[in-house]
Write a protein that binds this DNA or RNA. Structure first.
Lengths: 67, 67
DNA sequence: TCTGAATGTCAAGTATATTTTACAAATTTC
DNA sequence: GAAATTTGTAAAATATACTTGACATTCAGA
């Protein structure tokens, strides 16, 4: 399932996948895969992404479906 | 760094590490390691733990230090 | 005390997250 | 419309999350 919250939060900051990847110290492909979905990143990477985008875990990685 | 939020949330539900592990379909050692800290679980496991304990990601895995 | 349940921890193996390299398609910019 | 940037994707290699099995320690209850 695509992570559209992440994709739009990145767009709101006007960052390319590669720029976000650099901020998080991961490869561009990793960011691409996370946005694409069907991927299972580590919590530390999720936190790094949140910090780079000024969001929290719940805002980017929590689905109402989960509750 | 120890995850005391997780440890106390589990205690509040009166679950052993092994019981929580079963609910999340992981081994007891994995839960133990996460509570102990210096561990980097995947987001899917974090979500499974949150669901089992009735908490959200921010409540169990977000540190104010991160913000 | 003794027993059993819960936890900490370690070593070796397996599964999978992430990287690297690479190419094509789509999008933007001039 | 060509050039540069961004994105999707794939295969092979590497790093690391997670499992299994095992043993020691702690602590509550009989």
């Amino acid at each position: 399932m695509k992570n559209l919250k992440l994709k739009s939060a990145r767009a709101a900051k006007d960052l390319s996948q590669e720029q976000l990847a650099d901020l998080c110290n991961v490869s561009r492909q990793t960011i691409s895969a996370i946005e694409k979905g069907d991927y299972n990143p580590t919590i530390n990477l999720c936190i790094a992404i949140c910090k780079a985008l000024g969001k929290t875990l719940d805002e980017l990685f929590w689905n109402e479906d989960n509750e």
